[in-house]
Design a protein around this nucleic acid. Sequence first.
DNA 1: GCGATTTGACCGGA
DNA 2: TCCGGTCAAATCGC
Length: 282
Amino acid sequence: MAALVTPAASLVSELMVQGRQSAAVLEALLQDASPTEHAGIRELAAEILRCCDRALAALHHGGVADGGDSGRKRKSGAAAHKRRDKRARASGGEAAAAAKRVEKKRTAEDGFIWRKYGQKEILNNKHPRLYFRCTYKDDGGCPATRQVQLSEDDPSLFVITYFGHHTCCADVAAAAAAEEVNDLGETRPFVINFGSSSSDDYCGGQSETSSRLSSRNGCLLEGGNVGEELRPMVAKVEAASPDLQPTAEPCSSGDASCASLPWDWDIFNETSFDDVSDFFPF
DNA sequence: GCGATTTGACCGGA
DNA sequence: TCCGGTCAAATCGC
């Protein structure tokens, strides 16, 4: 696996390290200040750390997601092939298994822009399952899809199942997604671990239905000092939601507690989707 | 007008 | 035959 050594990759790597350090400091400060309070914010900081870990790992892996089944065509001629593709994935085919990843998160945001293409009531499940594919599927042939469902046990948690890898946006995002983390959380190359790190998250954070966002963003950090950006963002979190309770509470677009993990700092404040109820109207 | 979402229909695997 | 996943026409919102 060749590492990315382009100047841009180097810059991104550097920025990610900075951001990660800032997040680590924040986490430490919160821990020192009040070990029992601000749990939600600490969790947020920890997630930022994990995101940076994965982005860095991805960068140094130099991995770019494979094309996957991007060649899916419209219903016209290749319907049978297409269906077979889907079936293979649905029933846990070999390639599908390799690209499948299940996460439980407090929000459905993950840094990519998704387009909802279906919703289905699932047997013996209170909550419908929502189907999303990458907005850039048509644009760039990005094969990534995901399914989002509220957890049966804890309706405030999203159970998100990812299929395929993003080929549409930043290498960081694509590679992060491509880098399958095993359940044991082991063997993660180039992980500078400043704090907690779990295996189940990857770079994320932009809105779900940010359909009106015109720019492709992925979760690549753009220019500027990540660490500097982090401070005001976190302050906002604290002010808005001390405990970062997810649930289906209404929240405004600027509410970082609902906006979850705004890895894309530049567009964080534009986030329009950040409410569970936006997804699950029940 | 364009692009995203909704939702009923369709398809294939189990 | 049932059920889950996707399609695509209709609808909505900017």
